[in-house]
Design a protein around this nucleic acid. Sequence first.
DNA 1: ATAATATGTTAGACTAATCTAATATTTTAA
DNA 2: TTAAAATATTAGATTAGTCTAACATATTAT
Lengths: 219, 219
Amino acid sequence: MGTLTEENYIKSIYSLSLATGEVFVSELAKKLEVKLPTVNSMIKKLATKKLVAYAPYQGIKLTEKGKREALGIIRKHRLAELFLVKVMGLGWEEVHEIAEQLEHVNSERFYNRMDELLNYPKADPHGEPIPDTHGKIPTEKRTPLSAHKEGKKVKVIAVSVDQKSFLDHLNAKGLQIGDTIMIVKRELFDGSVTILKSQKEIVLSHQVSENILVSGDEI
Amino acid sequence: MGTLTEENYIKSIYSLSLATGEVFVSELAKKLEVKLPTVNSMIKKLATKKLVAYAPYQGIKLTEKGKREALGIIRKHRLAELFLVKVMGLGWEEVHEIAEQLEHVNSERFYNRMDELLNYPKADPHGEPIPDTHGKIPTEKRTPLSAHKEGKKVKVIAVSVDQKSFLDHLNAKGLQIGDTIMIVKRELFDGSVTILKSQKEIVLSHQVSENILVSGDEI
DNA sequence: ATAATATGTTAGACTAATCTAATATTTTAA
DNA sequence: TTAAAATATTAGATTAGTCTAACATATTAT
């Protein structure tokens, strides 16, 4: 375990690398809301600690050690989110901020007990997979709702964004993880989609449908 | 809320002031395991923030604002401890370290929900009182077991030390918060006491009996 | 009342994490 | 192929929290 700051760098490198493959110093600076030179010197430090491999203009890569660390933090974050929802009864739209703090708590006992109480869950309240103690992640095929054709029946597996405003929006529309929905219509004009969930029609903007991940890879 | 470091200073000043009345820079340095000049400069900072009042050779005092802050942290620590024991099923001897981290989590929602789930408890697993949201502390008369006479019947209300080794010792002896015990004999030689708990005799060293707090002020 | 002890302060340095300003290198596109 | 855009680096400063070494002041005990 490094400092809180180090942990946040590692975590961000991990998630950016999933999203974009390569992680440039500049990207990371944007994500962490710090300036370029700050990231530059931090990366050097992480490199001496063998947590990342870095070559200018070719991006930052987590080493195996770095990945292990990242997955450990992500495990804690996601377990905490699920715990807050299932055990403490908080809403999925309000747990991210708290988990952001809890993920830095250093106690195997605390997190393994959570895992046990939750019966070794596979996904957090937003549908994101929870790595196990060995850093293994259960994978499931998932694609954005926006990529599926009219007439298809799919299951909502996850959301790709944690923002309260987005989750409040889904709450208001009555859409949840696990829902089975049918794609009724997609507007050519703005890409908005109309879906059917248990007899009720729901209209979602294109932007929203891009951030809802559903079952299946066939598009 | 200040930094984590500031919070730890405030908390230590509070607990030292309960124990000894006056809090000297040197005492605080010992407690926090840092050197004198470190505390000296930190105290100056806390003073400019109006969290403490300080005059050399007369000790450090928390202001009203500082007290409020201290009680807020203590509330979080104690709620966390009780939550870890009651909801998560951990042992009273292992929750202190975890609560030490959780007490710095910044989320009213998190802690008020804990409070609610625990049904607004009055004391933590070690018997220490839990301040309410307004910083009010339920008080109860308590004295060390070592101060009571042979023949007296008392109730174990709290322990004055959180150390795992001490609590492990009490676990081994089978002594818990809430137990009603009878003082059978006190040895003149070493101050050890024999007590009776539900037909069974238990022998405690003087040192142990000093750290067990029981009901009543009459000695 | 003076020496011993307890208590506190100043000066100067270090590490971690950040910044601004200036500069450098690589890639890309006209 | 050279100019523009993207990417990265260096130098030097700042703040928070810590340290050591040297010095200062107050309390106490004989």
